[in-house]
Design a binder for these strands. Structure first.
Length: 256
DNA sequence: CAGTTTATCCGCCAGT
DNA sequence: TTACTGGCGGATAAAC
């Protein structure tokens, strides 16, 4: 609970038993997070917890379809919509059943760091990138993530050009900003430092090459933009937790 | 692996 | 006054 006073995003999972009442100190902690502007999202029947804090009053919201009527009965102030996967009110979000919770989380990832990364996350989570049809018409009340500025575009460009020179001066010039301003904006928008993010992009690139080619490790390193295989190994160990060769072997064994 | 060089990051601050 | 920019220094981390 103490982390609720610092968290940027708070996610409330579903509760098994709607008859249980949530301790008031939990509700207060959540309410404080809401009040200081943290982004708070509920999944499935977690909407009941969020509703109990009063944060949903006057807003449109959703929950598991079997619980929707009960939510509307208990909290007349809430505009309950059982026909959508999730509802985005900007900093307050709710989602329907558990699977829709994944859609909601993917929506957050997409808004935060772009569609490119979101599609990767979706792939990792083995779920379709964007569910369409049926009840998939989600509602976006908030202005669509302000200017999904050029930082987002830069990220996808980096993702595709891992082997290029991605030093700070180069990227800053690319963006038409000074180095100082660029690193500041990057940090604010992406939540990570450029070097860190680039290292992870390069590791992803290397993983792809290791999965799908027979290129020598040294070659994989240079194609992925690492100065040497030593540098790649270093990052690989830190991020993936194994060595490039071990990764390739593990992958080829498991890929039928 | 250890030592050296280079790059990055971020607080600070003066200038729009 | 607030909101933003961008150079500087130097601790820190990465690359060699």
């Amino acid at each position: 609970l103490p982390s609720l006073s610092r968290a940027d995003t708070v996610i409330i999972p579903g509760m098994v038993d709607l008859g249980l009442s949530v301790p008031s100190f939990v509700l207060r902690a959540i309410r404080r997070a809401v009040d200081r502007g943290a982004r708070v999202a509920s999944i499935c029947t977690g909407a009941f917890v969020l509703a109990a804090t009063g944060a949903l009053d006057g807003l449109r919201a959703t929950t598991h379809w079997r619980a929707a009527a009960e939510l509307a009965r208990r909290y007349p102030e809430i505009d309950v919509d059982a026909g959508v996967l999730y509802v985005d009110n900007g900093s307050i979000l709710t989602s329907a059943g558990a699977a829709a919770g994944l859609d909601l989380c993917l929506h957050l990832v997409r808004n935060d760091i772009g569609a490119e990364r979101a599609s990767e996350v979706a792939r990792l989570a083995v779920m379709p990138f964007e569910r369409a049809g049926g009840q998939a018409q989600f509602i976006v009340h908030a202005p669509p993530a302000d200017d999904q500025t050029s930082i987002g575009q830069l990220l996808t460009w980096i993702e595709r050009n891992a082997s290029k020179d991605l030093s700070l001066p180069v990227l800053a010039r690319e963006m038409g900003m000074s180095i100082r301003t660029f690193s500041r904006h990057f940090r604010a928008k992406v939540g990570d430092t450029p070097a860190n993010w680039i290292a992870r992009a390069r590791v992803r690139h290397a993983q792809r090459l290791l999965e799908s080619t027979e290129l020598a490790i040294e070659r994989v390193a240079s194609e992925s933009g690492f100065g040497s295989s030593t540098v790649m190994r270093q990052h690989f160990a830190a991020i993936v937790g194994t060595t490039p060769l071990a990764y390739r072997h593990a992958f080829s064994r498991s890929a039928v």
